[in-house]
Design a binder for these strands. Structure first.
Length: 817
RNA sequence: GCCGAGGUGGCGGAAUAGGCAGACGCGACGGACUUAAAAUCCGUUGGACCUCAAGUCCAUGCGGGUUCGACCCCCGCCCUCGGCACCA
């Protein structure tokens, strides 16, 4: 009998030994290909739950696999440490955000260490320390210098619970705060923005990255590029100096169908374009639109409402007068804030025209149209009608023809519109990187000089949820002198969106302690870009989009020489418990610690990977994890029993041959599954291999050398998944330390080939018999064999054979009438 | 409404250049060991018909189609999850 596997001893023993030996210390090494693989760093919210393990353990397994394959692997870890929860803890519990965050980091780091990952803690990155945020500020200055950071007054999204503005990307569902799920409102504020829209087109190019199609799609939708034409309508209104109104449309082919025009209620020209007698009604409508929440206003099923302004513009293509209206379905921020109303060919315009009795003129004839009125908008292509010289053209050609005409007459031009807005990065909160800007009465907006960085976050701010930045009330922080004129000046008191911190943290891993810049240029060149990134899909249009923007901006500044931060991306799914997403409020959060203590880190690692395909997520089950625990215990017993076994001096050649074949097939399957993150089937394959080896050992027909090769391979293939268990066994069977420095096993295609296969015999496509045949079998031989099988004959009785299908290496299908 | 992913035993899931549906694991049932239990080990386990065996039929969300042959491809639906949504 061998002694029992006790993970509580084994885990600790090797974690200590690896740390002591600096086994996972990562250096730049030009003799091996580099592999930079990382997982999205955790937010410092408190405890590590099983969801964190689900994100991190499989990625560690993959990184370990690459390491054994001979890559110089960088697989770092850090903490996303600025943000609202720390500040809320300060408000609710009177603990300073810094203390709260640092305690959480201590806690989470200790938990992470129990996982047995290959993190090199010397490269740890924490975003809330001055050594880090100094460079976040520095990047802000660089973006400002490049004209990519600007300050502007705009209607911005406000979270009443978080008491701060949010980026558009942080609004989820039907207008809820991404962090706290509160319904958001709007405010007019002067804020800092990053000009991400400048890169809208380039961000639509995914050709250099291997990302899940889903994520590319989400980014594409978010950017929302649409090609169209900006068309000018002639304006002649007393007291208005503008002589035209420009509208954006993707349907220039419908220009002859314009029967009204809609301005957004907030449009600056509304006041002037309203006739005296309509003023009261228009004002009332605007006031009412302002009162409405964003949700009500954006609701698709809401009935269309609007008010006639009393004034008109002229459609230059047909000289017709067109009524001007305001309606809240026109959005100020999209296009020009003015929509041309073509009720016959736009669903919204149709509803609006019906309600207010505005003419509906068909200009794109639906199939078989006889000039009758439409019951609903016809939005498909068709043949143009009522469109002067363009009548009879297919509408797709008409789009081009009218765009050409408009450009030739100087009535407008082709243009592109985007849904994406510039990235709002100001936050009216304390716990973030200060925006390194000073306001001077004489000099205006003055960037803090580089040599004065970092602008330190003061410790003595007061935390009250007032809706204003706590720094505003911190006089020692606010009051400063102007770097230009030396006069009295005040600092910017908003802090940066934490997504700014996470837009560049992966760069910092390359040289986490470098003091002369955000990154050591040599290390940047060596490690970046990230070869493999893994994380949840919830960051598709936030972190992942911002990081791409950031790198493109840095490239244009000459700081980096690549175009994309993350070459490959893998999205793991979500782990759920009791059919529901884990959350503290539901009380179904699984804490990994107790399972680690009881069953060992390796069991938890392996179980998470076995639940199902990583990209699909899965449900945690206490029963399921026991299965993995049993398996790893069987591996333990198997390897140690093999070590103490007495082997046959006259081993069976057949057993040896089959063993070799199974070995090489297993190596192949495991390697291929590892490459593609197919962890569940990889483990299934290793279980089968374990079961097979158990039987082989029992036969006592195997030679010692063959056994050792087969058993060692099991440990090597299992090493990335179960690093502690395999290290202990590797040591016990007398192999040299460390198993994690061994090369990954290779397979020989020659040995994976079978010399027999199971020939399937079908009659009319139904399985009737199976027979083992040599792979060398020929077609006529196989047909003959199939036709003479007793079970097959029974089904051929009295029937006529029409023909026989033969698929080499697979089957014979006899087709009868 | 639009875009994307998915729907397979009691459960998690295998299997797609169209070729043995249900690998592996869980659970359940039976057995061995034990004074007993736990643990461990061995066996059975999609459904129906049949006393058993042999065998036949049914079965991958639903309805059609293509094919010698469909979980896989095509057409039309239903449901679940994720994203976007008055974007002109």
């Amino acid at each position: 009998m061998v002694d029992k596997y006790d993970p509580s001893i084994v885990d600790r023993k090797w974690q200590d030994k690896w740390a002591e030996d600096l086994l996972y210390k990562t250096n730049e090494d030009n003799s091996r290909p580099k592999w930079f693989e990382m997982t999205m760093f955790p937010y410092t919210s408190g405890d590590l739950h099983i969801g964190h393990w689900y994100a991190m353990a499989p990625s560690d397994v993959h990184a370990r696999f690459r390491r054994m394959q001979g890559y110089n692997v960088l697989h770092p870890m850090g903490f996303d440490a600025f943000g609202l929860p720390a500040e809320n803890a300060a408000i609710n519990r009177g603990i300073h955000p810094h203390e709260w965050t640092m305690q959480n980091i201590e806690n989470m780091r200790a938990q992470l260490k129990t996982m047995g990952a290959i993190y090199d803690w010397d490269r740890e990155v924490i975003t809330c320390v001055p050594e880090y945020y100094k460079w976040t500020e520095w990047f802000f200055l660089k973006l400002h210098e490049a004209g990519l950071a600007y300050r502007a007054k705009a209607p911005v999204v406000w979270c009443p619970s978080c008491q701060t503005v949010l980026a558009n990307e942080q609004v989820v569902g039907d207008g809820y705060c991404e962090r706290c799920n509160t319904l958001v409102t709007k405010k007019d504020l002067e804020q800092w923005f990053f000009r991400i829209t400048k890169y809208a087109d380039e961000l639509l190019d995914f050709s250099e990255i291997e990302w899940p199609e889903r994520i590319n799609m989400m980014q594409k939708n978010w950017i929302g590029r649409s090609e169209g034409v900006e068309i000018s309508f002639a304006l002649n209104h007393r007291g208005v100096k503008e002589k035209e109104l420009r509208v954006f449309t993707t349907r220039p082919d419908t220009i002859f169908g314009v029967t009204f025009m809609v301005l957004a209620p907030e449009h600056p020209l509304v006041e002037k374009l309203t006739t005296k007698e309509r003023k009261a009604e228009v004002r009332e409508y605007i006031a009412q639109a302002r009162r409405q929440s964003e949700i009500e206003r954006l609701s698709t099923d809401k009935e269309k409402t609007g008010v006639f302004l009393g004034s008109h513009v002229t459609n230059r293509l047909n000289g017709e007068k067109v009524q001007l209206w305001i309606a809240d379905y026109a959005l100020l921020g999209y296009g020009t804030g003015i929509v041309m109303g073509v009720p016959a060919h736009d669903t919204r315009d149709f509803a609006f025209a019906k309600k207010y009795d505005i003419p509906i003129r068909v200009v794109i004839a639906p199939p078989n149209w006889n000039g009758e009125e439409l019951d609903e908008a016809y939005i498909e292509p068709g043949i143009m009608a009522n469109s002067g010289q363009f009548d009879g053209l297919p509408s797709e050609d008409g789009k081009r023809a009218i765009a050409d005409f408009i450009e030739s007459q100087d009535y407008g031009n082709r243009t592109v519109n985007y849904r994406i807005r510039d990235w709002l990065i100001s936050r009216q909160r304390y716990w973030g990187a200060p925006i390194p800007i000073i306001y001077c009465d004489q000099c205006g907006i003055v960037p803090v000089p580089e040599e004065d960085l970092p602008v330190l976050l003061p410790r003595d701010a007061e935390f009250r949820p007032t809706g204003e930045s706590p720094l505003l009330h911190c006089e020692s922080f606010v009051n400063t002198s102007c770097p230009r004129c030396g006069g009295n000046a005040s600092r910017e008191t908003d802090t940066m969106d934490t997504f700014m911190c996470s837009s560049w943290y992966y760069i910092r891993y390359a040289s986490a302690k470098y003091a002369d810049g955000p990154v050591d240029p040599d290390n940047l060149k060596y490690w970046l870009p990230v070869d493999q990134y893994t994380g949840g899909a919830e960051h598709a249009v936030m972190h992942l989009l911002y990081s791409r923007f950031f790198i493109k901006a840095l490239r244009d500044m000459g700081i980096v020489d690549f175009n994309e931060p993350f070459v490959r991306l893998f999205n793991q799914g979500t782990i759920i418990a009791n059919k529901q997403k884990m959350s503290k409020s539901r009380g179904n959060v699984i804490n990994p610690d107790e399972y680690v203590v009881e069953l060992g880190a390796d069991v938890v690692r392996a179980y998470l990977m076995f639940i199902g395909p990583w990209e699909q997520g899965g449900e945690w089950s206490d029963d399921g994890i026991n299965g993995i625990s049993r398996w790893l215990n069987r591996v333990w017993n198997l390897v140690l029993n093999g070590k103490g076994a007495t082997f046959s001096s006259q081993p069976s050649m057949d057993v040896a041959k089959e063993l070799k074949q199974r070995l090489h097939k297993t190596i192949k399957k495991v390697t291929e599954d590892m490459e593609r993150f197919r962890f569940n089937t990889m483990l299934a394959c290793l279980m089968e291999y374990t079961n097979y080896l158990t039987k082989v050992l029992e036969t006592k027909l195997v030679g010692e050398a063959d056994w050792r090769e087969a058993s060692n391979a099991l440990l090597l293939l299992l090493a990335p998944t179960a690093p502690h268990l395999t290290e202990e066994l590797w040591n016990r069977i007398g192999e040299s330390y460390s198993i994690h420095n061994q090369p990954w096993p290779r397979w020989d295609e020659e040995f994976t080939r079978e010399d027999q296969f199971t020939l399937v015999v079908q009659v009319n496509g139904k399985l009737r018999d199976k027979v083992d045949v040599p792979v060398s079998i020929g077609e006529s031989e196989a047909r003959e064999l199939a036709l003479n099988r007793e079970k097959v004959k029974a089904h051929l009785d009295g029937k006529q054979i029409a023909h026989v299908i033969y698929v080499p290496g697979r089957l014979v299908n006899i087709v009868v009438k």
